[in-house]
Design a protein around this nucleic acid. Structure first.
Lengths: 339, 339
DNA sequence: CTGAAAGCGCTTACAG
DNA sequence: CTGAAAGCGCTTACAG
């Protein structure tokens, strides 16, 4: 493995000069710089950020905590983060955090305690007190994308507004019997994504004067296609007051709903309007009306914020902080006026 | 940030002894060890693997190169790798490699040249000569899961056999007009996953005496649900000799096919049998017949191999190398005898 | 503009 | 069983 000493020797300079030439920090004569660069290229030398971190305190590595990799939204965010981080010369260390438990605690108490990352991006995780305290102690910048807990820099869609908008779309179409397929834990965790979307639904139907419960039924299910399928079968298969419109908390749930409707012989949108949330890459194929968000872009933004936080030169930590991330209602063919 | 000197001082020992006590290497009196451990716990000290790597040469970090994060198979593999790596105390640095291009070259020539990882796991990537050479020069263990190129340790499903088995299932049901929805590039890259599955299809129909081309049509499409949807519309919408059975190169393509059939009023399985490959988590919901593989487990296995390669103590590098990874035909409701 | 020296946080022979 | 010393690969004041 080539070390900086090898480059220095080859270029006929000291290690200090070689370091300065390669890093671009400090004065180096143009001619010297070129000689050093040529030498480095010749032996394929790239400085080890691990060794450098010992003296600079910077690892050029960011930790990403994410509960799923295999849900569309999270996968997109992760890809967006990865691209942006690599573009800036940073590595990305992945922590796929699942349910609370020993594995999760170990990420905070062991892995994140190893002084390996310059900062942490937490995607859609609901941090508890102990976790926040543990992160605070590290004195590393923390940026949260969605999720809840912690007082850190937070980027977030206004999920309450999203739920309200989706529901209002159905109301304005003339529907009066509207169901909501909520994410599991929506009622129990009002601050969570699914909790906020549910809140938006309730606000919208209440504003329209529709009595909750009877004409605005809510069922919770896993936020996946099979979760939506199972939940929708439940909601739509029941004889009697069937809703004419359904707001699914995610596009994947909406896809499952559409399949459930087909199976039950319910025509979409003639007999049932369906709207989702996300702007999933399959939404077009399903001709799904949805409230889009842009997870890839969100990931990129989170990296922007982290990088800005890491760059002490910048005084203002967060310019447009507080403003919710963009979303957009995209109307396709799964919603229409009731028959 | 607590350093080992702090622990040593608190425990009243030298840094050398503190290091030995914490790492478990070398002799330390039981009593001393306990004092050091207590001191470390008190101030929340965890050794920095980056600093240690300078002297040990081990970073406790493995790089993972993967072309997608948001395709079910790859997401599962990644989760499996992550869990196994964290279980062994290793970090996972993610490189989401897309098409050949400057970004991809940079991963090999810059990121992987930073001496940051102990080993590399490449998932489903077709390595070219330059990339293999670049990896060889690093002298880091490389294990490949699927994909092609390179002479490294390779774990792989027998994709030709998988394609053959899926096709034979349809043949044995009595089908004689069978189409194959292949992954893009199947014909052009015979060594690729999609190429091998296509080969298996061709072998099976040839063995059954079915003339390729006419009664055994192949169409290539993206290996995703919309890709399968578009491809299947093409294949099934054409008037005239419509196949009675279709082998999709992946479950996601099969899902798209099922939707396309529904849209065209073709009943599955009465008018069209559909089989996929993967064992996707949605396969049950679609009642899809498929050849299952176990990506999460494959990821775990890849980590096993990497860890064994990293552990010089072990003489034999690869015990059961060569044996293909397990797969299994799971028959559900999307395949039946032709009408 | 350049080099010698010190030091980042660790671990590992080497003595004792 | 334990400690003093050297050194891993870098960068950064500090002189010059």
């Amino acid at each position: 493995m080539a070390a900086i000493g090898d480059v220095a020797r080859l270029a006929g300079v000291s290690k200090a000069t070689a370091s300065r030439a390669l890093s671009g920090r400090g004065y180096v004569a143009d001619d010297t710089r070129r000689r050093v660069e040529a030498a480095a290229a010749e032996i394929g030398y790239i400085a080890s950020p691990d060794a450098a971190s010992l003296v600079t305190g910077r690892t050029k590595n960011v930790g990403v905590i994410i509960p799923f990799v295999n849900r569309w939204f999270f996968g997109e965010v992760l890809e967006g983060i990865e691209r942006a981080l690599l573009g800036a010369g940073y590595d990305l260390t992945l922590y796929n955090l699942s349910e609370p438990g020993p594995g999760r605690a170990r990420v905070f108490d062991f892995f994140l305690a190893r002084k390996r990352v310059d900062a942490v991006i937490a995607v859609g995780v609901d941090l508890d007190e102990h976790e926040v305290a543990s992160l605070d102690r590290r004195e590393k910048p923390l940026v949260c994308l969605g999720g809840s807990g912690g007082a850190a820099a937070r980027l977030s869609v206004d999920d309450r507004a999203v739920g309200q908008l989706a529901t209002e779309h159905l109301l304005h179409l003339g529907h009066t019997r509207i169901a909501h397929l909520a994410g599991a834990g929506a009622a129990a965790m009002p601050a969570s994504v699914q909790g906020q979307r549910r809140r938006g639904f309730l606000d919208a139907v209440a504003a329209a004067g529709i009595p909750a419960g009877e004409h605005a039924h809510i069922l919770e299910a896993e936020m996946s296609m099979p979760g939506g399928h199972t939940g929708a079968l439940q909601l739509l298969g029941h004889p009697g007051r069937r809703p004419t419109a359904l707001f699914a908390a995610s596009d994947e749930m909406a896809f499952g709903t559409i399949r459930a409707a087909e199976r039950l012989g319910i025509d979409v949108p003639a007999d049932l309007s369906v709207i989702g949330v996300d702007g999933h890459e399959y939404a077009e194929m399903f001709e799904l009306t949805t409230v889009e968000q842009y997870p890839g872009e969100q990931g990129r933004l989170a990296v922007d914020v982290v990088l800005r936080l890491l760059d002490e030169a910048t005084a203002d930590p967060l310019p447009d902080s507080g403003a919710p991330l963009p979303t957009r209602l995209v109307v396709r063919s799964t919603t229409s006026a009731p028959r």
